[in-house]
Design a protein around this nucleic acid. Structure first.
Lengths: 205, 205
DNA sequence: GTCTATATACTGATAGAC
DNA sequence: GTCTATCAGTATATAGAC
C-alpha cells in the first residue's frame, strides 16, 4: 500500500543492482563508472543517486547482502547441532558448493573487492566472513572431539578447506564436463579426506 | 659497457616496478594512478614513460615476470621425472607454499588482476598458469598410474589442491602463530590426504 | 633522465527543470 | 522518477625545455 509512485522505481532499483553486479564482476569495482552502470540500466547517470547515496554504498550493499544471505541460507538448512559432525560436514560442503556454483558473480565480487571497501564497511564484511568460517571450524572441532575426524591443526584445516571449496567458482562453467551434483559429490569426498574421517556410505550420484 | 647514462635509470626502473607492485597489491590496478606510482618513486608522472610504454604494460610485465619466475624456479629444483610421485608431490607442495608465502604481493596481483589484462596479455598469463597446473596434474596422474595415489577425478583434485595451497597467501602473516616450515608441513600432510597417498615417514620439523 | 606544461577525456556527484 | 547541464577534480599520455 501507499506506493503510488514507487512502481517503476522498484524495478529500476533492482535493475541498478543487477547491472552493478554484472559490471563489477566483469571489470572490477574501480574500473566501472556510474555512467556505465546507468547505460546498462537505461537511465542517465544522475538517476542512479535516487537509489544509492554513492558508489561505495553500491558495492557495500552487494557484499553485505551476499554474506548475510549466505549465512541466513545456511541457518535455514543447517542440521540440528546435536547431529553427528560427519553428517553436518557433508551437508555444509554440499550447501557451499551449490551456493557458490549458482552465484558466481556475487561470490567473485565478495572475494575480489574487499580492498575497495572503506574501513568500516570492510570490518563489517570481515565479521560476516569470519562468522561463516566459524561454522565450518565448529563442525571440524566437534568431529575431532568425538574422535571421528583426525587433523593436525583444526584452524589450518578450516582455512584450507574453505579455500579448496570456494575455488570451485574459479573453474566451474555451466557448459563443463561435470554436473553440479557430481562436482559436489567429489568435493564431499575430498573434504572427508582432509579431515581423515570416514564418510557414511551413500549414493554419490 | 656502454651505459654511461643508464646508471641512475636502472635504479629508477627497479623503483618503478617495486612501487607499482606495492600500490597495485594494496589498492588494485584500476584504482592506482600513474601519478601515485610516480610520487612513490619520487619522480614526475611523465618520467614513468621512459620505462613503460603505458600503464597496461606495467601490469602485464609484473604478472608475466611472476609466472615465468615461478615456473623457472620450479624447473630449477624439480626432481628428476623418474622420481616416485610421492617424493615429487612433497617437493612441489613445499616449493609452492614457500614461494607463495614469501611473495604475497606478486601472488595477490597475479590472481586478482586477470580482469584488467587486455585480451592478448590475458591469454599469455593463462597459458603460463595452465602450464603450472599441468606440473601438479602430471604428478597426480603419475602417482595414480603407479597405484600410490587414489583419486576419484585427477583434474578436480588438481584444481582443489591448487586452490587449497594458494589459499595460504590469504591468511599467512609473518607475525602469525606458525612458522613457514610448520605451515608447509601441514599442507604436505593435507595434500597427501587429498590424494589418498601414504607419505614416506620423515621429520615434520 | 627528468621536468613542466598541456591535450583530451573521463570521473563522482549535485542542482534544478519537467 | 528521470533528464539535462554542469562543477570540480582526476585520468593517461605526449611535447618540448633543460
Amino acid at each position: 500500500m501507499a506506493r503510488k509512485t514507487g512502481s517503476n522505481g522498484e524495478k529500476t532499483r533492482a535493475a541498478v543492482e543487477e547491472a552493478a553486479i554484472r559490471l563489477i564482476a566483469r571489470h572490477g569495482f574501480a574500473a566501472v563508472s556510474m555512467r556505465q552502470i546507468a547505460r546498462e540500466v537505461g537511465v542517465q547517470a544522475g538517476a542512479l543517486y535516487l537509489y544509492t547515496p554513492d558508489k561505495q554504498s553500491l558495492l557495500f550493499d552487494i557484499m553485505r547482502g551476499h554474506m548475510e544471505h549466505l549465512l541466513a541460507s545456511w541457518e535455514a538448512e543447517a542440521p540440528d547441532p546435536a547431529t553427528p559432525a560427519v553428517a553436518r560436514l557433508e551437508r555444509l560442503v554440499r550447501f557451499h558448493i551449490d551456493y557458490h556454483i549458482h552465484r558466481p558473480e556475487k561470490v567473485f565480487i565478495s572475494y575480489m573487492e574487499l580492498r575497495n571497501l572503506e574501513p568500516d564497511n570492510f570490518a563489517e564484511i570481515e565479521r560476516l566472513r569470519r562468522a561463516y568460517e566459524g561454522v565450518l571450524e565448529d563442525i571440524l572441532r566437534a568431529g575431532a572431539a568425538d574422535g571421528v575426524f583426525h587433523m593436525e591443526d583444526a584452524r589450518i584445516t578450516t582455512m584450507a578447506m574453505i579455500a579448496m571449496l570456494t575455488g570451485v567458482s574459479t573453474w566451474y562453467r555451466d557448459s563443463g564436463r561435470l554436473q553440479p551434483a557430481a562436482i559436489a559429490a567429489h568435493y564431499v569426498d575430498m573434504a572427508f579426506r582432509l579431515v581423515g574421517g570416514a564418510r557414511i556410505a551413500q549414493a554419490a550420484e
